[in-house]
Nucleic acid binder design. Structure first.
Lengths: 98, 98
DNA sequence: GGTTTAATTCGACTTTGATCGAACAATATC
DNA sequence: GATATTGTTCGATCAAAGTCGAATTAAACC
């Protein structure tokens, strides 16, 4: 499967990032990813339907919060902390502390 | 007119604050209020319908971002920066810098 | 090739949220 | 009291976003 194209850090907008964070499931995913280097989709699934989670992963990718690395059949997700720190200093630290 | 009841700072949630910020008009209001002590609704109105703006003021109040002081017929709005800093350190600084 | 596993895409449905005119409430002023 | 000003509330409408089963893609493995 082809890689995803993630938006460049310069093109990220504060509004877009805030929209990405403004959902309970996505905020939970982001906060989880704040404490681990990366996690597969399955590891973040919980007991929710896969299709719902796929939607949230897509929103997180498009808003620039999440990077997805494909390895075989698994997708490993990580927080784009360095990019976000560069673009919006202090933001993720505050989010992950909450 | 009776005062509004603003939520206590302890009861604010990160998700609620993020939801409050995740709208272009509200983010603009918040960022504007970051640079002035307070502003009346009229001063923040722009060319938008009053009823639309009233809705956004309500959302901002309920999420704990905004405090409204009533003086006569005017409503003076201010950012609840001290409360937000206490509850979510660094968050508003990052938002206002964006 | 067939099967299992991981995750997405599609499509339909539902829910949430934004928009905004019209009516209303409250204060100030003449 | 009448009028103008400031802002809210109501109610209807519309658009955006979340939900999730079923079908699909892709890789791994026997």
């Amino acid at each position: 499967m082809a890689d995803y194209d993630h938006p460049a850090s310069e093109s990220l907008t504060l509004l877009g990032v805030l929209r990405g964070l403004a959902d309970p499931i996505r905020l939970e995913i982001v906060q989880h990813l704040g404490s681990v280097p990366e996690a597969s989709c399955a590891a973040l699934l919980g007991d929710r339907p896969r299709s719902s989670m796929s939607h949230h992963f897509q929103v997180l990718r498009e808003s620039g919060l999440l990077h997805t690395r494909i390895q075989g059949v698994q997708h490993f997700n990580s927080l784009r902390k360095a990019d976000l720190d560069l673009r919006f200093p202090g933001l993720m630290e505050a989010i992950l502390a909450g």
